[in-house]
Amino acid sequence: MSTTRHFRVWRGDDEGGQLTDYDVEVNEGEVVLDIIHRLQATQAPELAVRWNCKAGKCGSCSAEINGKPGLLCMTRMNTFGEDQTVTVTPVRTFPVIKDLVTDVSFNYEKAREIPAFTPPADLKPGEYRMQQVDVERSQEFRKCIECFMCQNVCHVIRDHEENKEAFAGPRLFIRAAELDMHPLDARDDRKEFAKEEQGLGFCNITKCCTEVCPEHIKITDNAIIPMKERVVDRKYDPLTWLGRKIFRRDQLESGAK
């Protein structure tokens, strides 16, 4: 069964743009990306949009639908009323290239600043032994499909461009947590790095990142807050501090995780 629906799609580039109206056919079972493709095939061949898998697995098709960040390929048309206008805009936080395509290089640059996984020096390939319970927390974060919607929705940079320099964003906080919780990572300074270099303190745990994550990663509860707590462990915990004073544990255990 097909109906004609009203769409508004942001068309433009770095020099400006506007919401453009389209009436377009919609069939049963379609998602917003299908409609964008239909627009390309019939009314706007040069309409720019990113996509690959069309199954919520690659994280290419992030945009904003009726003002909410979402994957175009996972937003079903039957979530809207038949006479409801559907407005599709590019993600706001990153510079626009054209139409629905934005320049997401911010995220790749920030990813390059995190010290990589550091394997234990004395372990050869094939000798790695890890227990399932020990890898599970990091595995949750490795589900990330890098759609960057958490980065886009995070008000720290969405509403404050000037914070981009000092703030790495939720996608990279889960990367920090993943490495800090990795059973074999040999680095000991990931918490300090998260605080000092990634701007963990900018996050006011308002959880929008968790709300939009299509992989349902509990970004705030399982990564950001634990990382904040791990910083507290080292810097502010009264009992740890006391223990250190008494036992000089910092000297005994320096370097150990």
């Binding site: 942001w10 433009g12 770095d14 003002g67 407005t87 805009t89 510079p95 626009v96």
Partner: peptide, 16 residues
């Protein structure tokens, strides 16, 4: 590449 402007969307939010 030098930093480029964001999409010029007039509405402060499009949430409905």
């Amino acid at each position: 590449t030098p930093p480029r402007p964001r999409a010029a969307i007039a509405e402060r939010t499009l949430r409905t």
